[in-house]
Amino acid sequence: MSFTLFPDTRAALAADALTGLSVGDALGAQYFVPGIRPGVLPDPPWPWTDDTEEACCLLGALTASDDAELDRDRFADLLGRHFDPYRGYGPGAVVMLRQIREGTPWPLAAAAAFDGQGSAGNGAAMRAAPLGAWHADSLAHAAVQGARAAEVTHAHPEGIAGGVAVTVAAAVAAAARLDGRPVDLLGAVVAHTPHSRVRDGLVLATRIHDAGEAAYELGTGTRAMAQDSVPFALWVAAHHLTDYPRAITACIAAGGDVDTTAAMAGGVVAAHTGVDGIPAEWISAREPLPEWVAASLER
């Protein structure tokens, strides 16, 4: 990559990714409501879930500092301060974030999760797209920062690998938007994702060309694990990188953990298309983002 990103550009790219992530999350979540079927656009408003809340905290931590390194203490503080357990957090996340809110250092809280194994869930991945867009000028640095951000809540290697993969994917997507070059999104992500079941799924994804086969072979997040959601979400992003509505529709049609796969795919695709690629009526239907996020972008 041969371009330099200034702070305002980084923030704008990350904000686009956050919009794509939050709209995908909010729309996808509607299909858990009884009576709403794929192919039918639900009535607004569309409330967002924990995917968006954590992504807002990540962007808030990024905009609070001009440093190239994510301030993980700041990020953990925002997660603990802003989390709302009624936004769809899993039980393990609720326990961990309450511990952080009450003063437990985040490395201890993350390491203690799941009887000391650490979380292998997709939480680090679902929030990661703004971080990748922020670091679009260096895939290697994006990968490092993706791991650092994941470690705040995910001590398991699979959870970390999922965060790295989505971070790199968003960096690739934003970089392609800036320099106009063709992109092998899955190939680039595989090259920067640590050896893991997540990476194995991404390698398999490079050989799949049919959406139904991708959902069947890669998983759609029904176990809420990084390895059964990240490869499919990034397959969708890679195959619909210039078409945000088709990407989100593909996640909805596949079923599973729809809000999370749509958040991941939507954040990556919007890093490439910008907000102009997202239907304006979808953005209007999404519940407004917290005021403190907008304030952080204005600094």
Rank of each mutant, 00 (worst) to 15 (best):
Phe114Asn: 02
Gly123Asn: 00
Ala12Tyr: 07
Asp259Met: 11
Arg246Lys: 10
Leu234Met: 11
Arg286Leu: 06
Leu241Tyr: 13
Arg223Met: 15
Asp179Asn: 12
Met225His: 11
Thr52Asn: 04
Gly255Gln: 09
Arg207Gln: 07
Ile252Leu: 06
Thr63Asp: 05
Trp46Lys: 03
Glu151Ile: 01
Thr261Gly: 01
Pro157Tyr: 02
Gln227Val: 07
Ala133Met: 08
Pro91Met: 07
Ile283Pro: 00
Ala149Glu: 10
Glu69Arg: 09
Ala149Phe: 04
Gly277Ile: 04
Ala247Ile: 06
Gly35Thr: 01
Asp77Lys: 11
Glu158Val: 05
Leu241Thr: 03
Val198Met: 08
Pro279Gln: 12
Leu202Arg: 09
Ala76Met: 07
Pro47Leu: 12
Arg10Asn: 10
Gly187Met: 04
Gly88Val: 09
Gln30Ser: 15
Ala109Ile: 09
Leu185Lys: 03
Val40Tyr: 14
Val152Gln: 11
Thr242Phe: 09
Asp84Glu: 14
Arg74Ile: 08
Gly35Val: 05
Arg181Glu: 07
Ala174Leu: 05
Ala253Ser: 13
Arg87Gln: 07
Glu217Gln: 14
Met264Gln: 15
Pro45Glu: 11
Glu281Val: 13
Leu5Asn: 01
Ala112Asp: 14
Arg87Gly: 06
His141Ile: 15
Ala250Thr: 12
Thr104Leu: 08
Pro245Val: 06
Ala14Met: 04
Asp137Tyr: 03
Gly116Asn: 13
Phe83Gln: 02
Gly118Met: 08
Arg148Tyr: 04
Gly118Ser: 12
Leu297Cys: 07
Leu18Phe: 14
Arg101Pro: 00
His156Phe: 08
Ala165Thr: 06
Trp106Ser: 00
His209Glu: 09
Ala15His: 13
Val95Phe: 02
Arg72Gly: 11
Leu97Thr: 02
Gly221Arg: 00
Pro279Asn: 09
Leu78Glu: 15
Glu54Arg: 14
Thr273Glu: 15
Arg177Gln: 06
Pro7Asp: 12
Val269His: 06
Ser296Trp: 02
Ala237Glu: 02
Arg199His: 07
Ile278Pro: 01
Leu58Ile: 05
Trp46Arg: 06
Pro231Asn: 09
Leu108Ile: 14
Pro45His: 08
Pro288Cys: 13
Gly20Ser: 03
Arg37Gly: 08
Ala15Pro: 04
Trp134Thr: 10
Pro47Tyr: 05
Pro107Met: 13
Glu217Ala: 15
Gly116Met: 15
Asn122Lys: 10
Pro34Gln: 10
Leu204Cys: 11
Ala214Asp: 00
Val198Asn: 09
Glu102Cys: 12
Ala188Gln: 14
Ala143Leu: 13
Ala271Met: 13
Ala254Asn: 03
Ala254His: 05
Ala17Ser: 10
Trp106Pro: 00
Val203His: 01
Ile283Met: 10
Leu62Asp: 02
His209Val: 11
Val236Trp: 04
Leu78Thr: 05
Val236Asp: 07
Phe32Glu: 13
His82Gly: 00
Ala161Glu: 14
Gly187Ile: 12
Phe114Glu: 06
Ser229Trp: 01
Gly24Gln: 13
Leu202Gln: 12
His141Met: 11
His135Leu: 15
Thr220Phe: 05
Ala150Asn: 12
Pro231Phe: 04
Gly159Lys: 14
Val94Thr: 14
Glu291Val: 14
Asp179Tyr: 12
Phe83Leu: 03
Trp48Arg: 05
Ala188His: 12
Ser22Leu: 03
Val258Ile: 15
Glu151Leu: 15
Val258Tyr: 05
Asp276Thr: 15
Trp282Ile: 12
